[in-house]
């Protein structure tokens, strides 16, 4: 049977992107049922190994999203995240993982519409390469 929906793991910081995703929900912005969110205090808590673990366990895509640079609830957590995710993204091909299946971005608590766009767009992208 063809896979109708892909499974994407989202690592979201509690303060911005998780709240943004909530906001998209409150506004009833329809999104594909692909995403499973893991809530974290901050993107700075996202260990790149956790992302790889998700791929190893069979995730079709992994999405990391936090506060915009400069807006991290813990001031600098997302700067660390950015560096870590940037390196990870470049390493993926060497591990045989199409980097199109990985995405990190920034969505604030007030950007519900942007969040819905991110989920829609990333799901589309993952479906294309999977």
């Amino acid at each position: 049977m063809p896979k109708t929906e892909v499974k994407i793991i989202g690592f979201l910081c509690n303060w911005c992107s998780y709240a943004g995703a909530d906001m998209a929900g409150t506004a009833r912005m329809k999104q594909p049922a692909s995403l499973r969110v893991v809530r974290l205090p901050c993107t700075g808590r996202v260990n790149p190994l956790l992302v790889l673990k998700a791929f190893r366990e069979g995730a079709d895509g992994v999405l990391v999203s936090g506060c915009h640079p400069g807006d991290c609830h813990y001031n600098e957590g997302n700067y660390y995240a950015r560096r870590r995710m940037e390196v990870l993204e470049r390493m993926l091909p060497a591990l045989g993982i199409d980097p199109a299946r990985f995405h990190y971005t920034w969505v604030s608590a007030s950007e519900g519409a942007k969040w819905a766009d991110v989920v829609n767009e990333f799901t589309r992208r993952v479906k294309q390469v999977i």
């Binding site: 205090p41 901050c42 700075g44 808590r45 260990n47 813990y74 957590g77």
Partner: peptide
């Protein structure tokens, strides 16, 4: 404050 930066 519980950000978890150190954990990583």
């Amino acid at each position: 404050q519980g950000c978890g930066l150190c954990n990583v």
